[in-house]
Design a protein around this nucleic acid. Sequence first.
RNA 1: GCCCCCGUAGCUCAACGGGACAGAGCAGCGGAUUUCUAAUCCGCAGGUUGGGGGUUCGAGUCCCUCCGGGGGCGCCA
Length: 528
Amino acid sequence: MNLKTWLGEEIGAVIRARWGQELSVPVAYPPRPEMGDYASSVGFLLARTLRRSPQEISAAVAEDLRTREGIREATPAGGFVNIVLDEAWLFARFREAAARGFPPLPSKDLRVLLEFVSANPTGPLNVVSARAAAVGDTWKRMLRFAGVQADAEYYVNDAGGQIRALQASLEYFAGLREAFPEDGYRGAYVEALARRLVAEDVPREAWARTVVDWILEEQMAVLRDYRVDYDSVVRESWVRRSEYPAKVREKLAPYLYEQDGAVVFRSTAFPQFGDDKDRVVIRKNGEPTYFFWDLAYHLYKAERGYDRLVDLLGPDHQGYVPRMKAGLEALGVGGDRLEVLIVQQVNLFREGKRVRMSKRKGEFYEMKTLLEEVGVDAARFFMLLRAPSTPLDFDLTLARKLSQDNPVYYVQYTHARTVNLLRYGEERELAPDPEGLFRLDLPEERALALACLRLYETVEDAARTGEVHRLAQYLLDLSRTFHAYYQKVRIVTEDEALSRARLALVDGIRKAVARGLELAGVAAPESM
RNA sequence: GCCCCCGUAGCUCAACGGGACAGAGCAGCGGAUUUCUAAUCCGCAGGUUGGGGGUUCGAGUCCCUCCGGGGGCGCCA
């Protein structure tokens, strides 16, 4: 259960009962934990609407809240109300959640399609793809945990200009072409692919198509190793053959005009999306632009019944967003149904020095290399440490270090430690006793039970906006709290009842951490 | 020139629809090991949130402006 949501509803009920108004207010954390478990600024927020002073409102809300089940204390403080949950009630919620392994929230009537990575099938995946994959996949897992029906999709640009360039590059490396093609693909891997095509006697006209399949297979294999599962893969070549291009032309017609022999979409007819110029959809040579095919693809997504269409794009696509939204608005899909998260770049560091890459020479650090160098667990967790919209410095040296400053081990160690404690208890025939949780009276123990339950609000809040770093930060916080408790208190002692109660707490922590790690796509080791 | 992201402790970053005295980690200094794994913990120190103005009961967060860093501005994808 999401305590924050629940408290918001409780406050809403109080407002309804007292003033007969249907209002919802946000619930947050007070600045210092000793002030309470949760806080709300109801007084300030409703002062205008209710025409009462903030103090009066918060005092009244606090008074009514105190009578509700689960709330031990509600204290007005200016326009704020600070709330302390009832300890026995809290342990009961903890016990329920733990008994079921911190299960996902009930399902909601909301469908979301996440599209991420969708790298060109012209080469191996790089580290930006690794970041997008970690963010996209964890976002999907978090949405599902929050009860949202979320799917992940991979789009393959297996048609168009870059495929022609790939074909030409392969021909060049096979010695069938004198000059290296303009916008061609370099790198050892292209040469290797050309050799393989020749060795396997693939007919020249099928080279690009065949290589796309090989590369796609390789990309998907790396993503699988990375624990990323796609629910669907859509090919641009399929979209081109589908009914969607015709539908786009038809629906877009009122917003199209001709200029210099090209067909242009009046993107500026939708100033709310901020595009600064109109966009060509059909070139004067009659060939549609990438934008046109992409609209067809997104129309297809929308017609499959998703409420929200989310694209994770690289920073180089930032200027592309306004026209897509305007286009979808014109198609009747609604520009706001598309949400774009720009996943910023990744800077690699090794031994404190920047790892340089030259795309021009076809040299870059592959995602596969990253997995070999630091492993899946560290790679994924590090990618989740920062807000996706900010650039990420990835310290390769730290990621493979087996020490306390490596955040991934810090969290994994929490899990290993809980498992070890339970095993130690078992050896002494001490099984966890959830019924005994109520006898735990240390502030740390109450705080730990609450921290575990906060998994729900953390994930639900983070899943709304794709702020996956909150999950990582949460796991680090919970781990800190747990390690400190472990250091301070002996779990298994002569006191059998107390030991069994503490083991029940430890068992719940184990399950909460395991769930959090699962959402991050990171393994929860039993020993380290 | 226009648009987007960013600027918070020496370093890397948090701060959840604007909330209370801006928090962590690392680095620095000082401590804790007869242990249920020290891959851990405790303490100290560290800030004019890039500058200025505005809106608000309240601004790191919103608006304007300036400075600095990164990215984008194709009938490429």
